[in-house]
């Protein structure tokens, strides 16, 4: 069973702050991490391979420094890593990103499953996974919370819905996007970290994946960011300290109009 896991390096959102005066993003000291949802994708891929044999290949599209995310993925059990990196990819929106990753996966060729995290925490779009499936014209099961059965030619998985879940069956190859409930990602092992330090990371450029240049990066991106701004701050609220009874009465009075 050969599994491809697509990951993204993202800034740790919790550290992204806005300068209150200049209204600019403060980026100093912001750490880059593997998108948290992608950790579940890596773990699921590694577990599948531990059980069924084969290998896990992690792929990321990003700048050269995204290599660190790939090394971390190897420390978590992935076997091979490919960095898809080229200046031509800069400015890619989800359409161009999913195209680029799909072309890289086509080059990998021998795969049974593609696993992605349900979304990335910096963009929160949840579009790239299904986009890759559409580019490759393979079926998809999104929001997977459990793989019920995995056979040579098919997969049965639970897909989370707003009301509960559905059980879907799909032939392979198939693309999954996974949610947090699917597993509990492992902590890297010492042996894994040492392996990751010395692992060879393949780098593929636009020419390597035989992509059409007008479908990459900014040229292949229909959407553009027109404006970025800081959301208006909430005005300072009313804080009651001491006299709980009085505080409760005041709040009940105010809320009555909103609730009734």
């Amino acid at each position: 069973m050969n599994v491809v896991v697509c990951i993204k390096q993202v800034p740790e959102t919790t550290q992204v702050k806005i300068d209150p005066i200049t209204k600019n993003l403060i980026r100093e000291g912001v750490k880059s991490i593997i998108n948290p949802y992608d950790l579940y994708a890596i773990e699921e891929g590694v577990r599948i391979v531990e059980q069924h044999g084969g290998k896990v290949t992690v792929v990321t599209m990003g700048p050269p420094q995204a290599e660190a995310a790939l090394r971390e993925a190897i420390s978590l059990g992935a076997d091979e890593a490919i960095l898809v990196s080229d200046r031509a990819f800069a400015g890619a929106d989800t359409l161009a990103t999913s195209y680029t990753l799909a072309m890289a996966i086509k080059k990998i060729k021998d795969y049974d499953l593609i696993i992605c995290g349900k979304q990335a925490i910096d963009g929160d779009t949840a579009q790239v996974g299904p986009g890759i499936a559409a580019h490759l014209d393979i079926p998809q099961i999104t929001y997977v919370r459990k793989i019920e059965a995995l056979e040579e030619k098919s997969i049965t998985a639970q897909r989370t819905t707003e009301e509960g879940y559905e059980v879907l069956q799909s032939p392979l190859p198939c693309l999954l996007t996974v949610v947090k409930e699917i597993n509990n990602p492992r902590i890297p092992s010492l042996k894994g970290k040492m392996k990751a330090k010395n692992a060879a990371i393949l780098t593929w450029k636009a020419a390597d994946i035989e992509a059409e240049s007008d479908r990459l990066g900014i040229a292949g991106s229909p959407t553009e960011v027109w404006k970025i701004y800081t959301p208006p701050a909430r005005s300072k609220g009313q804080i009651y300290d001491g006299d709980p009874e009085g505080a409760v009465n005041a709040i009940v009075a105010v809320l009555k109009e909103h609730l009734i």
Binding site: T94, Q127, V128, G129, G131, A133, A134
Partner: peptide, 21 residues
């Protein structure tokens, strides 16, 4: 979950832009 899954595929099939959320 339904909306996001289906429209991501549609955007690729039409090769147009899609803004999430």
């Amino acid at each position: 979950t339904i909306g996001r899954s289906v429209v991501s595929r549609v955007a690729v099939q039409l090769r147009v832009g899609l803004t999430a959320d």
